[in-house]
């Protein structure tokens, strides 16, 4: 999902650059206030970890593999802004040392993967975690947040790309990005879930505590006042992610279709055989017609959401007892 140089319009690059810089400054300030002189070692080590973790390839199918992005994982371990700072460090090193992601697109990449990935991701994660409660809540919330943030980041990426070109082209880019990232997001959710599960089974204390009621028994509905802002942001994030999937279906844009018609030679290269997405790496995809893409995008969104819910419940079953036990233990300790 790294946007390279020269793809974005200079104005879009400048705008996202300013937005990213502002977000990063705010993130650094808040992390420094929270961690004090521990900032450097913890942020540096976690950045190195996310960087290394991104190099582990997961087999998806024959000849195809995917890897973790880690935005939600970092946010679940350290909190939203620390997660964003970690992602920023990873992006800067990737850009300067490896040429991965453009220098002028650094802001856009940080907005997509850091601010949306970690901060909005955490805003989705926190209310779900609080609502379900316990270690179960942590696992399920992390997986759902990972799934939705990959889609949101893809949506933001599509928005940036189409803002750089023809605005009416937005839905075409969006449906492609959403379709491909439905699959990537599924992988991200499952990897994030399995890693979080591993941590919960070994060192649950390392996971960032819910500041509002860390040691309280988790009773949905009552207890200390919820942080409404996070809940609203999270709800907004989920709603937007749903829109990412459904809007291509709703759009009746003759321009997009005309355009496809003009390029039919290019698009028809792959026969529109299967509306079900096949495993694909980041940017390489077969090219069925736009109608199929729209339908497939919506189907992928629906199926993906259901799969994430099902898998996360399945993985979290382990914690039905363990969660309560550890809560009791921590309540005893308090």
């Amino acid at each position: 999902m790294h946007i390279p140089d020269a793809v974005l319009d200079p104005r879009v690059a400048a705008l996202t650059g300013i937005l990213g810089a502002a977000g990063l400054f705010y993130g650094l300030k808040s992390v420094e206030g929270q961690l004090k002189e521990r900032t450097t070692s913890l942020m540096g080590m976690m950045s190195a970890f996310i960087f290394a973790a991104q190099m582990v390839n997961f087999p998806v199918g024959p000849g195809v593999s995917g890897h973790l992005l880690g935005s939600v994982l970092a946010a679940a371990m350290l909190g939203p802004w620390a997660g964003a700072v970690v992602i920023a460090a990873v992006l800067i090193v990737q850009c300067f040392l490896f040429g991965d992601g453009g220098l002028t697109a650094l802001g856009a990449n940080f907005v997509n993967m850091g601010l949306i990935g970690s901060v909005v991701g955490y805003a989705i994660y926190a209310p779900i975690r609080r609502w379900i409660g316990g270690q179960r809540g942590i696992l399920i919330a992390a997986m759902i947040a990972a799934w939705f943030t990959v889609l949101l980041a893809a949506g933001a990426c599509a928005a940036e790309l189409s803002a750089s070109g023809n605005h009416r082209d937005f839905f075409r880019v969006l449906s492609w990005m959403a379709l491909v990232h439905a699959l990537i997001g599924l992988g991200e959710a499952i990897i994030t879930g399995l890693v979080v599960r591993f941590i919960l089974l070994t060192r649950p204390d390392l996971i960032e505590q819910d500041p509002t009621f860390a040691l309280e028994p988790q009773v949905p509905g009552d207890g200390p006042p919820r942080r409404w802002l996070a809940t609203i942001l999270g709800g907004l994030g989920v709603a937007l992610a749903v829109v990412v999937f459904l809007s291509p279906l709703a759009s009746e844009l003759p321009d997009g279709l005309e355009f496809v018609g003009q390029r039919i030679g290019f698009l028809a290269a792959e026969s529109p055989s299967s509306p079900i997405p096949v495993p694909m790496p980041d940017y390489q995809l077969p090219l069925p017609s736009l109608e199929h893409v729209k339908a497939a995008t919506a189907v992928a969104g629906l199926v993906g959401t259901l799969v994430v819910f099902a898998v996360s419940w399945g993985l979290a079953r382990v914690f039905s007892g363990a969660g309560r036990r550890s809560e009791r233990a921590s309540a005893d300790a308090a």
Binding site: S41, L42, M45, F58, V60, L194
Partner: peptide
């Protein structure tokens, strides 16, 4: 066996995450 290798690989990542945390503590 991709199911098995996903479990193994995430276990590896989890382990690396734990070790990173502990190393950060020690270095700090």
């Amino acid at each position: 066996g991709s199911i098995l290798s996903w479990r193994l690989l995430t276990g590896m990542l989890g382990m690396l995450l734990l070790r990173s945390f502990e190393r950060a503590e020690r270095v700090h």
